[in-house]
Computed example of a mutant assay.
Amino acid sequence: MLDDFLVRAALAGLGVALAAAPLGCFVVWRRMAYFGDATSHAALLGVALALATDLPILAGVLLVALTMALIVSALSERHVSTDALLGVLAHAGLAFGLVAISLVPGQRVDLSAYLFGDILAVSPLDILVIWGGAALVALLLILRWQAMLTATLNPDLATASGGNPRREQLILTIALAITVAVAIKVVGALLIAAMLIIPAAAARPFARSPESMAVCAVAMGALSVFAGLYASFAYDTPTGPSIVSAAALLFAISTGLSPMVRGK
């Protein structure tokens, strides 16, 4: 029999994979890796806000992640030079978050849990929150899939057919903020962007359509969770980084197999 904490960890990881993997497909298609970094790193400011105001951690992280995501989205629409500026925002958000947490009076905080996650310590309530957030993200993607896909691949066509690319960008922004808020407990602020990008990138060589890429990305994310948990349990390695390392190995394997897959 598996220990209860491993079952809870697996359920939490699967919930994050369900939300992050298909959302990560849009991040990859839009070439928005910086977007995920800036939003996830700013989540530590949300932790500090929650500790200072006695808000639930989820509420503080969601508020700050959504604010940062909206700022990044607005800057990208203004065609601001994104690489350097958003790199600054990502790292500044992380640094200010760490400083803000250290300044909260009367709080002793295990920063490693927020930086790298603490999936083995998730509670049943945490699992409910994670799966609730994952279900909300999945619902947003299902309801807006075709509109978001058209706006991603061809914004001009989306506008000509009566769509609103800015609205779809806003929906994607909200979904990203929700994912960051529920994933911080599992993989931490430093690794959330990796769980968005790597499973989607690993799924790309095997995809024959956008829908199949999203499904394959979920499978890659779930496999990363199971492999990372196994490695952490067997070799006593940090669980969050082990999950991301497993995802990176899957990406390396899929990249190596890509010529054979495309040759079929």
Rank of each mutant, 00 (worst) to 15 (best):
V88N: 05
A52V: 04
D54G: 10
A84H: 01
F96K: 02
G106K: 05
A65L: 08
L45C: 10
A69G: 04
V99Q: 05
L75S: 10
L49Q: 02
A65P: 01
D83V: 13
A100M: 10
G60H: 05
A95G: 07
G93T: 07
A50C: 02
A42R: 07
L70W: 09
V80A: 11
T82D: 15
L103W: 08
T53D: 09
I101M: 12
V99M: 13
A43F: 10
R108Y: 14
A74K: 09
A92N: 02
L55W: 15
P56Y: 14
D83P: 01
S102T: 15
A48W: 06
S81G: 08
A43M: 11
L62A: 13
L75W: 00
S73W: 07
L63C: 04
I101Q: 06
P105M: 08
V64L: 13
L66T: 11
H91Y: 12
I57K: 01
L85H: 05
T82Q: 15
R78Y: 07
T39N: 00
G97E: 08
H41R: 06
A48Q: 08
L44M: 01
G46R: 06
A42K: 04
G60E: 12
A90K: 06
P56K: 13
S102W: 09
D54F: 07
L98P: 04
A48K: 13
G60W: 03
I71Q: 09
D110G: 01
R78W: 06
L98N: 09
L75R: 06
H79K: 14
F96T: 05
A100Q: 07
T67M: 14
I57P: 00
I57M: 10
H91E: 11
A50H: 03
A95N: 04
G46T: 10
L44D: 00
A43R: 10
L63N: 02
L45G: 01
L66S: 02
G46A: 07
H79P: 02
L51W: 01
T39L: 03
L55K: 03
V88D: 05
L85K: 00
H79A: 14
G93P: 01
Q107W: 10
G87N: 11
V104M: 02
M68I: 15
G93D: 01
L49M: 00
F96A: 06
L75T: 08
Q107C: 06
H79Y: 09
L58S: 07
L62F: 09
A74I: 14
H91P: 03
G60N: 09
A90H: 00
T53Y: 07
L75G: 09
L75A: 12
L63P: 02
S102L: 14
G97A: 01
